[in-house]
């Protein structure tokens, strides 16, 4: 009998960005929604994040960026995900992202961008509805 697996979510802060209150609140909300949250901590390089996604066999990658470096870091992360054969991982970005960048991030391959003011329920629901199917 196959048990339903709790979604595994890697949450990370990439680059020179020391603000982690937001990502910790999201981590708590996902945990309380029954997910397994792997938090990597601050100041991660894209390579480290992708390594965590691969070894942890995560379904979801959530990146919190409040430094303004999203247009630089997100394409690197997307490239690495694809190189590692992790293109099916649900990729979410949260943080202070200017409105005009959001469509560009979607185009790069980000599934959703959560900006300040979004409800935690909203994030939980989005993940549940968009979890990649795994065999």
């Amino acid at each position: 009998m196959v048990k339903s697996r709790p979604p595994r979510v890697v949450l990370s802060k990439v680059g020179l960005d020391g603000h982690d209150r937001g990502v910790k609140i999201v981590a708590r909300a996902l945990r309380d929604a029954g997910m397994e949250v792997i938090y990597t901590g601050l100041w991660q390089t894209p390579e480290r994040v992708i390594r965590a996604v691969a070894d942890e066999d995560a379904d979801v990658l959530g990146i919190s960026i409040l430094s303004g470096a999203h247009m630089t870091l997100v394409p690197i992360l997307i490239d690495l995900l694809r190189q590692e054969g992790l293109g099916d991982v649900l990729f979410l970005v949260g943080g202070i992202i200017p409105e005009e960048d959001i469509p560009k991030l979607h185009e790069m391959g980000v599934s959703h961008v959560f900006i300040p003011g979004v409800s935690l329920d909203n994030i939980v629901t989005f993940i549940r509805e968009h979890l990649p199917a795994r065999t």
């Binding site: 709790p6 945990r31 309380d32 929604a33 997910m35 949250v37 792997i38 901590g41 480290r48």
Partner: peptide
């Protein structure tokens, strides 16, 4: 959590190795 089944797995925070 025995209540929700969720978990916060924080061990990677301290693991510093070359990716």
């Amino acid at each position: 959590s025995p209540f929700t089944g969720g978990a916060l797995l924080g061990e990677r925070v301290r693991m510093d190795y070359d990716p």
